[in-house]
Amino acid sequence: MRSGGLDPRRTSFDEIPIIDLEPMFSGDAEAKADLAAKLRKACAEVGFLYVRNHHVPQAVIDSTFAAAHTYFAQDDAAKMRNHVSLSRNNRGYAALLEENTDPTARGDLHESYDIALEVPADDPDVLAGKVLYGPNQWPEGQAAFRAALEAYHAEMLKLSGHLLHAFALALELDETYFDSMVSKPLATLRVLHYPPQFGEIDDRQIGIGAHSDYECFTILAQDAIPALQVLNTAGEWIAADPIPGCFVVNIGDQMARWTNDLFASTVHRAINRSGRERYSIPFFFGPNYDTVVEALPSCIDADHPAKYPPIAAGDYINGRFAATFAHYGAAQEKAAAGDAA
């Protein structure tokens, strides 16, 4: 195996690498191979990277940030009309402190609105109880908000396909290796609003507590306000400040499991000390609900047996959501009781 084989080298990095994605759009095989080697190194050593030349129109990004500003400026009563507790599948609004990504902390200082793949209520997977599939909640009378988020979600699906092809090459697999596993992905778009924190800050209550992401990877758009920090192997928090024209991409826990920990799902957090409101747009991409996540053939050998038992992607995410979102387990219990009645 190239690039250090299956023994990953974790570094006490002091900056986040930048990867140019243009080869995944140009089709040049030699340029793709060079990109794949750089991507493998970034994912094995850091687990975070910036991507440029991603081909997502800036107008789509700007519209979604504008929609987030307008939405979160509403009063609490208006936002609570689409609270996530009204959704069986974790879609809608969540208020300050309702999420707790770090179980040792006291809640995250952000509010959010989540959508995912739009799946009709009468879809066979929804009727079969695969609760991460289903329809989105949408605020009444806010067509511009819905249009902006749906356009952004569609662009993220396209970009995720290109990224998956790059990951496959980086893992010495056929470029289309993952395609059949993401025909109906668990792909969540979230818009986030972080109020500023002033004075002495309790590290148990920050914008978002220290955590790793659950899915295969996350694509993050940031506004101009710095807040994101990434933990290196020396225990230092490294800034992942916004770079114009770039998304931040980080490896999630499912990809770490898929790669038998060759790729790092790196702990990160956000603290908004800017004195201004901060907005960000993460997109969490994972495979189909029933896709079994188990060590990839290129990530195991006699000296590197599989570390994790196989698990369906949906079952894995369900378990993580239940541990993170106070409303999620209650919504599932309520739905189950209704189904049994």
Rank of each mutant, 00 (worst) to 15 (best):
K32N: 09
L35P: 03
F178P: 08
E15G: 03
R269A: 04
V248I: 15
I201V: 15
E294R: 13
R257Q: 11
F48A: 02
I225Y: 07
D34A: 13
E30K: 13
M181N: 02
H69R: 14
E333Y: 00
D14T: 14
C216K: 00
S63C: 01
L171G: 04
V182H: 11
H55Y: 08
P17N: 13
L39P: 00
K334L: 09
L39C: 11
S87E: 01
H327M: 02
A221W: 10
E277W: 02
P310L: 06
N318D: 09
V249I: 09
F198S: 14
G314Y: 06
S3N: 12
V131H: 00
R269H: 06
A331I: 02
H162N: 07
F198M: 08
E99S: 11
F65L: 13
V119T: 13
F167H: 02
T64C: 12
E172F: 00
G245C: 14
D34F: 01
L192P: 05
G329V: 01
I225P: 07
Y177C: 13
E30F: 11
I317L: 15
E236W: 03
A326C: 01
R91H: 03
R320A: 06
A68M: 10
A234W: 09
D202K: 14
N82T: 14
S183N: 03
P242G: 08
K130D: 05
Q74Y: 08
T218E: 03
Q58H: 11
C216Y: 08
I271V: 15
D76N: 00
A331V: 07
L173V: 09
I281N: 03
S183A: 14
Y133Q: 06
Y308H: 15
W258L: 11
A166T: 02
A29S: 15
A313R: 00
D339E: 14
E200Q: 12
P135K: 04
L163E: 00
L220F: 04
K41C: 07
A116R: 04
E15R: 09
D114C: 10
T104M: 10
Q254A: 08
G47L: 06
T266L: 08
T291A: 14
M255A: 12
L171Y: 02
